[in-house]
Nucleic acid binder design. Structure first.
Lengths: 116, 116
DNA sequence: CTTGAATGATACGGTTCCGAAACAAGCGTT
DNA sequence: AACGCTTGTTTCGGAACCGTATCATTCAAG
């Protein structure tokens, strides 16, 4: 099980994908924002501010601010939980799904180009 | 030639590595900074501000500022080119090499854990 | 009801970053 | 020496981010 990579392949893949993202002037997300975005799109809901903070090992304001920024870019959206109005549920958006899908395509393409 | 990944594997890999980086409170590098750092460590020298700007498709001040930040974290160093003193040569550091090496290990480990 | 715990958001002071423009320094040719 | 050209840095106003601390709202239990 799993995918085998050499050190050279692993780092080259990381470089190529980051270069591609910078070049396509996609939103310049920080590592934290990327981790949040992918967690929302890959892990099963519901996603709360507190839950995301715990999963990333950061404080709540970090999550709130990241959601502010990514929300203004339409990558995620926030909704009050009507069952417990203290909670905020973080949900996917069309633009966010497109961003993630495109990122996946880039990773696959760059992995396919790796030398043996 | 190349490494085959499914969309699910590609995105899960990206999430897991980013989560690991955030969790280890390694320096929170932006995509641009990561692209610069890996280019310095993977591509053959010499590396100049102008060359890096061209490779990333950004302006020179972006490179200067990124080198300021990463330099203060000892991840890269700058030296005047004595042959042509207009040039600044960007070089590797011990700390930078350790950072890159550790990143490679994380990528390899997370790739190995991917479900089929 | 009132109190205490839980959840997110906000305020604060400080750092970094952005793009565009201006700047300083070095080179090479005349 | 003086001129353009190249290279890298700095400046500007404006925006985003950090960690810590505080605030506002909501729930739930006494």
């Amino acid at each position: 099980m799993g995918v085998s990579l050499t050190a050279s392949q692993a780092l080259r893949l990381w470089q190529q994908v980051n270069l591609a993202e910078v070049h396509d002037d996609a939103p310049d997300l920080s590592e934290r924002q990327m981790a949040i975005l992918l967690t929302i799109y890959l892990d099963p809901p519901p996603h709360t501010v507190r839950g995301l903070a715990a999963k990333l090992g950061v404080t709540k304001p970090v999550i709130t601010r990241a959601l502010d920024t990514m929300g203004s870019k339409k990558l995620v959206s926030r909704h009050r939980d009507e069952a417990d109005r203290r909670n905020v549920l973080v949900k996917r958006t069309v633009d966010g799904a497109l961003y993630v899908e495109r990122l996946g395509d880039v990773i696959i393409a760059k992995a396919a180009e790796l030398p043996l």
